[in-house]
Write a protein that binds this DNA or RNA. Structure first.
Lengths: 209, 209
DNA sequence: CATTTTTCCGAGTGCTCAGTAGGTAAATTG
DNA sequence: CAATTTACCTACTGAGCACTCGGAAAAATG
């Protein structure tokens, strides 16, 4: 079911003598592309704009990536790797709140995520499978984390781990949208923490705020 | 603070004798535009594509709307009017669940909302102010609804109406994204209903399912 | 220095797009 | 029927886009 995104290019080896490939450039370009895509979306970003950010011509950029789609895939793959690392073991469900907190400081990544998630819903978008798989995996992992943290008390009509996971993930994305539109209006980490506690901790009335 | 979107064209009056303006066409075009924008987003939709849906040439369409942006504003204004009506008095907070249920049957509108909400985050997007105002109003109204439904019992560490509102709205949008990516994966109305109950009804253990 | 490989660019192609200009046909009124 | 106003189209402009082609400079090896 869950088709993973392709590996992020397995370090192409030196082939003969000539000039060595500049691996830095690829990363520079990916970083620039992330910023650009985050600001204008994928379809509405131009290769030329990305190229300009790294002091390249559009054609110079196309030397490193065969086409625009390949660039997007590379960006997503790298972003996913970083986020997975950020996510860590996720033994504790409260890590989600920590992630929200960190995201507060990098609107670019948040924007990229929000924009592409929505954009990728349309037909035949190159990032479509990526995000479908990502959501599936996220729900699964969060559900697992919930299950592991579940040893607490659970006396009342309790949502299942799967339901909890779907709702937490949803709240995360939804809060990001509100926050992007008006950073002052919502406190992402606080709200997510609150939701986490309320959702699966019908504890008898302790631990508030 | 809350700047409302401009009124949806105040029914331009007959001016002299000539041919009467075809108000039907405007609505036809708006409907077509909604579908088109919902599928491809605003910036990535073409006027020609919208025009084709109603059997017009691109220029024929531009006779009715001075430019693309005006068309978007018209679509949003109409959509907002309809949604506000749907939303009704919202005396009961459970109406939100009902709205989620209805949305299940009109992916087009959901797509438009999700796509434009994200797209409008970018700089100088014509729909930016619209969505910022909309979120603000939504949070306020939902918070009010929560407050009115609050008479129940509330013994435990309870989220405030404002927090509840922000989280409900967030979950709604986040669930929509997940649902758009994989309709089988999440049950929007069920999850939203569950969240509603959990969020402000730490009732002693009654009323489940 | 000759060779090879990588890096990058100038020029160009073919496409799509929003918006303009100018004109014709249709519907309504007097 | 004449005047008027709307509806709509053909033709066009100018811009931006992804992507190709062919070549030149740079950096390494021998």
């Amino acid at each position: 079911m869950s088709e993973n995104p392709p590996a992020p290019v397995p370090e192409r080896p030196r082939r003969g003598r000539g000039r060595p490939p500049a691996t830095d450039r690829r990363r520079q370009i990916e970083d620039a592309a992330l910023e650009e895509f985050a600001e204008h979306g994928f379809r509405n970003s131009s290769l030329a704009a990305v190229a300009q950010r790294v002091g390249l011509s559009q054609q110079g950029l196309l030397h490193h990536f065969p086409n625009k789609e390949a660039l997007l895939v590379a960006v997503l793959a790298r972003r996913d790797a970083v986020d997975t690392a950020d996510f860590g073991g996720l033994r504790d469900i409260d890590r989600l709140t920590g992630l929200a907190e960190r995201n507060t400081e990098r609107p670019g990544v948040v924007r990229l995520h929000a924009l592409l998630t929505a954009e990728a819903v349309t037909d035949d978008h190159p990032a479509g499978p990526f995000f479908r798989a990502r959501y599936e995996e996220l729900r699964t992992r969060v559900a697992e984390a919930v299950r592991e943290s579940e040893h607490e008390e659970a006396p009342a009509p309790q949502p299942t781990p799967e339901e909890t996971a779907a709702l937490l993930v949803a709240a995360m994305d939804g809060l990001q949208l509100q926050w992007l539109h008006d950073p002052e209006a919502v406190d992402m980490p606080a709200l997510l923490g609150l939701l986490t506690r309320v959702l699966y901790a019908h504890r008898g009335g302790a631990e508030q705020g």
